[in-house]
Nucleic acid binder design. Structure first.
Lengths: 195, 195
DNA sequence: CAGCTGACAGATTTCAATATCTGTCAGCTG
DNA sequence: CAGCTGACAGATATTGAAATCTGTCAGCTG
């Protein structure tokens, strides 16, 4: 809407795209809308992103990366691996649940985007299971956990806790006993890891 | 299509409805189609089912009950609870995976139906976790498992293995290493249950 | 007269015409 | 002349009128 003297960068386009997605939703957000929000012609947007799909993918990646970043600290700490694993899983659940609860419409939008960008989601999951692998390997090293193949075990832990981070289950995250369900699964998984 | 001299029963209507759903898919299957398939007027169908939604719900329940029935035997056997649990989970996974793989279109149809009938799905899940509770309680009684609250533990096991029975994950069930993923999660869960 | 039919009102879906969008590119502009 | 514009072709989405469907019920039929 507002023309600007600032140079048009990929970054500014991504911010405008997020805003347009927030306003119009994934079905109605168009490249023309993004250009209008930036006060440029839509041809200029295509100078920075080859296709609309590429633009949406970039937005999706940014969003997923922001989620991962908030967890890396927990994964990297030098503490008791069991407590670290519990904290990491709780942090992941809390982060996802907050995103889903705070702005359900925006969350639904990102649910559509992740559905469109399976590859980006795959990279995100690889990142997350990598963080888990680190915690589990540390646990195996200190003797707290049994794990012949930390990477495989990490993926099993990730799959076993899917109910509490997979956006497809977001509808269940406001059940009154969801915390108890989370505790029960984490307890089961942690017991399964112990040496 | 073919008129019949047989009396019109709920059973016959349900069979015809399954056939119509198979043929036309969930979006295009109409009550008029079902009536046509039975050679009656659609008014007659409404004599047995108050609404189209009720008819679809009945079809959904039948389908879910057929799945449950194939597992009750495994749950009720008098054998080593750990082996029984592994067999039960494997049987559930195999049954779902076969349904998804054999006729993907029909499976997609039932995915829509289960989405429409959350209540029926809830009853189905209650049934399945009930079967799991029995196995786990047996394990706790024989001393093979630790479980202060078998029902809660059963639900945790069900949630932890969701990737291998929740139809939402059907798209992942033809990954080459899906069996290894299943083994890893089941091993983790079984270790978590052991006393 | 129990069970079925078929006409009907209102809701939903389909379809085709119209409008908008995506992606390209020749040419304009600072 | 690097970066942007705006017109354009083909693809996609929107719209509103017509067709079909859902659910009801008075009356037919065996």
């Amino acid at each position: 809407m507002t023309p600007s003297t600032e140079t048009l960068t990929a970054e500014r386009i991504l911010e405008a795209t997020e805003e347009v997605l927030r306003r119009h939703g994934p079905a109605k957000a168009t490249v023309v809308d993004v250009a209008r929000a930036l006060g440029v012609s839509h041809g200029s947007v295509y100078r920075h992103f080859r296709t609309k799909a590429a633009l949406r993918e970039a937005v999706t990646k940014r969003w997923l990366d922001r989620t991962s970043a908030s967890l890396t600290d927990v994964a990297a700490e030098a503490r008791d691996p069991e407590a670290r694993l519990r904290d990491w899983l709780a942090a992941l659940f809390t982060a996802k649940r907050r995103k889903a609860g705070d702005d359900p419409e925006l969350f639904a939008t990102y649910l559509v985007l992740t559905g469109e960008n399976v590859e980006a989601v795959g990279a995100h999951i690889t990142d997350l299971t990598g963080q888990l692998t680190r915690i589990i390997r540390d646990g195996a090293d200190t003797g707290a956990f049994t794990a012949t193949d930390p990477a495989t075990t990490a993926r099993a832990v990730f799959h076993a806790t899917a109910r509490f981070h997979d956006p497809g289950y977001a509808q269940d995250w406001d059940q009154p006993d969801i915390e108890a369900q989370f505790e029960a699964v984490v307890d089961l998984v942690v017991r399964g890891l112990r040496a």
